[in-house]
């Protein structure tokens, strides 16, 4: 039997993007975050962007640890505040590409207000949201994505809340790129993240991913692969449908695909236009002063 040299064995295709000295990572075996992280690294490599021009920002949670493992300028911020931090970072250095990678609870519960406003402004950020339907790091509590009726440690009798549809929310707020895949759509996910990175404006990629440890276990889908399959088998690809119809319905269809891709000016584009005096004053059609005057006189 011949053995490969240890150095060759130790190499991973993304080693140059990994802080290998920080491996092993904290994620559970069977967690979907690693797959998304792999797709993100593959997309960054494919993008051809100079490494020093890409930053990754995350909040708090299992997904939030991505920033700590990637060998780029990387920022692990406070719970829910990755997007406003990234906003400042991007506006200070607009030639750089800023990617926010975080979980559903971080981005859309505690950070929900920042999410909707950054989407509204079409801030030039790429948001990768790993949606595993619960708060994994703290042991599996209710998230804004937890399915109705699902069990978590803070909904032991079942979730009484309606979950958000993140893609519909992002589109309604003005996001100019919106897509969703499951963690088993690896090739499509990587291509989507690549597209999102190259997109100018607020791009949002939701990835439905298994958290077998905290979520699956309490909801009778214990095996990591079973949970991956559970999501994948229910998924149907429907590109460019109305985002409101891109539902996550576990009894019928978990809709995946690219729902929004628009070319519209970013916050900074508008800001520069306004400051150059290129934006017409509001309202475009002025009040007819003479008519108003007549009414007053009458």
């Amino acid at each position: 039997m011949t053995t490969a040299p240890a150095a060759a064995l130790a190499r991973h295709p993304h080693d140059d993007l990994l802080r290998t000295e920080r491996i092993p990572h904290i994620w559970c075996s069977g967690c979907g975050i690693g797959i998304v992280f792999g797709s993100l690294m593959a997309a960054i490599t494919k993008s051809g962007l100079p490494r020093q021009d890409v930053a990754v920002v995350s909040g708090i949670g299992c997904t939030g640890r991505m920033a700590g493992y990637i060998r780029l300028d990387s920022f692990h911020t406070t719970h829910g505040r990755a997007i406003p931090f990234a906003t400042g970072l991007q506006l200070a250095r607009p030639q750089g590409k800023v990617i926010v990678a975080s979980g559903d609870g971080d981005l859309l519960a505690i950070g929900g207000n920042h999410f909707i406003h950054a989407a509204r402004r079409n801030m030039d950020l790429t948001i990768i949201c790993v949606n595993n339907f619960n708060y994994g790091m703290t042991g599996g509590q209710l998230a804004p994505s937890t399915p109705y009726g699902a069990k978590t440690t803070t909904t032991p009798q079942g979730n009484p809340d309606e979950p958000f549809n993140f893609c519909a929310l992002a589109a309604a707020c003005g996001a100019s790129y919106v897509a969703r895949w499951t963690a088993l759509h690896i090739r499509r996910l990587t291509n989507t993240i690549l597209e999102a990175i190259h997109h100018r404006g607020f791009s949002f990629v939701e990835v439905v991913a298994p958290c077998p440890t905290a979520f699956g276990r309490r909801n009778k889908i214990r095996g990591a692969l079973d949970l991956l399959r559970f999501y994948y088998d229910r998924s149907v690809v429907k590109n460019h449908i109305a985002p409101g119809e891109a539902t996550i319905d576990f009894d019928h269809h978990l809709v995946v695909g690219k729902f929004v891709e628009l070319d519209r000016p970013t916050f900074l584009d508008h800001y520069q236009m306004v400051n150059r005096g290129q934006v017409e004053a509001w309202p475009a059609t002025g009040v007819d002063a003479s008519a108003a005057g007549q009414r007053k006189a009458g």
Binding site: F75, T78, F85, T87, G88, L89, Q90, G96
Partner: peptide, 11 residues
């Protein structure tokens, strides 16, 4: 949060 991000962006 934004001013912290901007500071790391060099401003």
């Amino acid at each position: 949060a934004a001013i912290l991000g901007a500071s790391w962006g060099g401003r």
